[in-house]
Design a protein around this nucleic acid. Sequence first.
DNA 1: CTCGCGCGTTCACGGAGGCGAAACAACCAC
DNA 2: GTGGTTGTTTCGCCTCCGTGAACGCGCGAG
Lengths: 172, 172
Amino acid sequence: MKVELVEWPGEEERLTQLRRDHVPRLVLVPEGMAPPLTADVLEDWIRLPAVDEDIRSRVRVLADRADGADDSRVPELDENGLLRSGGHWVSLPPVEHRLMVVLLDRYRAVVSRDALARAGWPEGIPGRNVLDVHIVRLRRRLAPLGLAIRTVRSRGYLLEEGPPLSAVASDG
Amino acid sequence: MKVELVEWPGEEERLTQLRRDHVPRLVLVPEGMAPPLTADVLEDWIRLPAVDEDIRSRVRVLADRADGADDSRVPELDENGLLRSGGHWVSLPPVEHRLMVVLLDRYRAVVSRDALARAGWPEGIPGRNVLDVHIVRLRRRLAPLGLAIRTVRSRGYLLEEGPPLSAVASDG
DNA sequence: CTCGCGCGTTCACGGAGGCGAAACAACCAC
DNA sequence: GTGGTTGTTTCGCCTCCGTGAACGCGCGAG
């Protein structure tokens, strides 16, 4: 994963945003200035002036941590509609391909039904229920790859690995 | 926890041992020498010569990480109603999401029933019993994540890490 | 101690709405 | 034609959320 370089002081807002988004980052601190300290393992800092090799070293460590943090690779989707994951592959028809693009772009995060509708049917949504049906079809196609689309009620859908969704508490 | 200072090169064996024992450590690297790199979050290094304050800063961060490694981190609630903790997640419906925002904001501290009511129903509380019922539902939803809402009688509620799952697992 | 009360917990119920999925029909590529 | 893709309808389950009621428990009064 890419490591961002942040100038300190001067990029406080950007640093805040990177922290919130869990993007690995190296803070560049000029002489005499106190570094912004955090226990976050995805953040490091270095005192300027520094030799390039030291900066590269810290960047490399941060990148390793970040890669190890998302404990699995995201599946790959090529422009011909082939989805590869876990050594297997399936081909996706046009609509499902467009849906998959945004689901992969926000892997393991929620994608709203609205965003999915816009991605799948840029010209406008044909019917109300179309999206649901295509989600069902996508689910069936993705299951053999060890991928699952979870429903987040009234919010959207989320793509992640594996079926084992064991216990969901039900309402009394 | 105490942070060990390691001279590099010269204390290779001691460094190996500290790594094996998971003791937080700061490696002191003289000019022109390549630092020993690792993704281990309990290890850091600094280029000599360095000002004392920089060394103290890195030692403090390492100590914080070591201390924080024991008790779990605070759970995260994203804007889509997804609550992540301990590698798992659950989705929260609108009302419970609003309640959770203030409980997380005052993590491990008491939140008054009044504050919870205002957070959950900004337009005004619909009924007298509603808050209690939603606390129950929130409790059930949080249990699988290892989170628990404690009652502080006549004061309010408090969110903290839950009982071990053994006590939660079964129910007739 | 025992009772009553305030406070909190939990269950059951039902309406409203989100979502799942089968079945069907039209269409397109080969 | 054959098989795959897409849109539509329809049915029904499940979730969400407010309401009412029963129950448990600590604490002060008697």
